[in-house]
């Protein structure tokens, strides 16, 4: 799962090496400079990659800044869709 999330992020950022270098301590907003358009395109691409449905109306930037938070978020969405 981590590899796929990084690959999706790499496509959105247009920099696969940068995405591959992130760790659990990386803040993807502050450290990678992900802006609001990139964030929404990242989430839409995650939906596509993991075949899940996210509730966009309930999402805030601050919930999605760390890699572990995104991983948890995808896992929760996968569980909810089962």
């Amino acid at each position: 799962m981590e590899h796929r999330i990084r690959a999706v992020l790499g496509e959105v950022l247009g920099d696969e090496e940068l995405a591959a270098s992130i760790t659990d301590e990386t803040n993807i907003v502050d450290d990678l400079g992900l802006n609001s358009i990139q964030m929404i395109n990242f989430l839409l691409a995650l939906e596509d990659a993991f075949d899940v449905e996210l509730e966009f109306e309930e999402l805030s930037f601050s919930q999605l800044e760390s890699f572990p938070a995104i991983r948890q978020f995808v896992m929760a969405a996968m569980a909810a869709d089962r």
């Binding site: 802006n35 609001s36 358009i37 395109n41 839409l44 691409a45 939906e47 596509d48 990659a49």
Partner: peptide, 20 residues
């Protein structure tokens, strides 16, 4: 600029936008 624009990068993204 910075909000209110979606790039349709795959059929899945289009499906998601359609659903929302």
């Amino acid at each position: 600029s910075g909000r209110g624009t979606i790039e349709v990068s795959s059929p899945g993204v289009l499906r998601s936008v359609g659903r929302v």
